[in-house]
């Protein structure tokens, strides 16, 4: 079991960091505004996976006291990152919706989505 846990350690943290880096790369290099917002939402997903993975406990159960499960407090996973991520997902949707509406408004005004043609916003 220990060997598998080592593999999962590398795999889960590695893929969470990789998702963050991919999203950041897309937001930094792409010219299309929709691609930039998409990259930021991928970055969000990576951060959520990272926080849930920190709270995980080996052979843990979900933090719910169902019937017959009242005494198993020590094997429950950490509920606090789950509450934080629950908040963060909903807020992330609000942020994405506002960003998309700004993109639509910019397109209506400038008639393009390429950020280097709008106002030299990109370096």
């Amino acid at each position: 079991m220990e060997k598998y846990l080592d593999i999962l350690n590398v795999a889960i943290y590695g893929s969470a960091v990789l998702l963050m880096l991919i999203g950041l790369y897309g937001a930094l290099t792409k010219k299309s505004l929709i691609k930039i917002v998409l990259g930021l939402s991928i970055l969000d997903s990576g951060v959520h996976l990272l926080m849930i993975a920190i709270g995980y406990l080996k052979d843990g159960t979900a933090p719910i006291f169902s019937a017959g499960n009242e005494e198993k407090m020590s094997v429950m996973v950490d509920p606090i990152p789950q509450a934080l991520v629950l908040t963060a997902i909903v807020i992330g949707f609000g942020v994405t919706a506002v960003a998309i509406s700004l993109v639509i408004r910019l397109y209506r005004h400038h008639n393009t989505l390429r950020i280097d043609e709008i106002k030299k916003l990109k370096w």
């Binding site: 846990l5 999962l8 350690n9 590398v10 889960i12 943290y13 590695g14 969470a16 960091v17 963050m20 990272l50 993975a53 920190i54 995980y56 406990l57 080996k58 843990g60």
Partner: peptide
Amino acid sequence: LMDIFFGIGFG
């Protein structure tokens, strides 16, 4: 980032 998070352990 990977250096930090591989060090703190999973599970």
